[in-house]
Design a protein around this nucleic acid. Structure first.
Length: 113
DNA sequence: TTTTTGACGATTC
DNA sequence: AGAATCGCCAAAA
């Protein structure tokens, strides 16, 4: 294979793309799944680059560990993220996901293998 | 190559 | 309990 250098971003895109609808995860959870739990911020950075990716990365399903739509400001519109989440059946109140713990989708657990 | 940043997280004050 | 600060890590300038 050729491109095996910075697969970090690619890995992030892949994991985020695997997030089922109606489910959300946190940056730290993804980073943890990648093995670099300390690089939760990098996941967010990858999201920023995700807009340049050809693949549509459902970044709206990725929120911080508090279930807060911290990255909404980086979307086309700061309301787009909440709109998408609500469209998938996720209740968002004041940029805060309701029942976040119930919607939480951890790749390390759901995928695990 | 060095410095800065950055959509987080946990800890400390 | 809320706010501020430090720590991690990797990419972009």
């Amino acid at each position: 294979m050729k491109k095996d250098k910075s697969r970090f971003f690619q890995d992030v895109y892949e994991v985020v793309r695997l997030i089922p609808e109606g489910r959300v995860t946190s940056y730290g959870a993804i980073a943890n799944y990648l093995g670099t739990k300390g690089s939760a911020r990098m996941v967010g950075w990858a999201m920023n680059n995700s807009f340049s990716e050809v693949d549509s990365v459902p970044a709206h399903r990725v929120v911080n560990r508090n279930g807060l739509l911290t990255g909404k400001n980086h979307f086309a519109t700061p309301t787009l993220m909440q709109e998408l989440l609500e469209k998938e059946g996720i209740k968002v109140k004041n940029d805060q996901i309701q029942h976040f713990d119930s919607y939480f989708w951890d790749p390390a657990i759901e995928i695990g293998f």
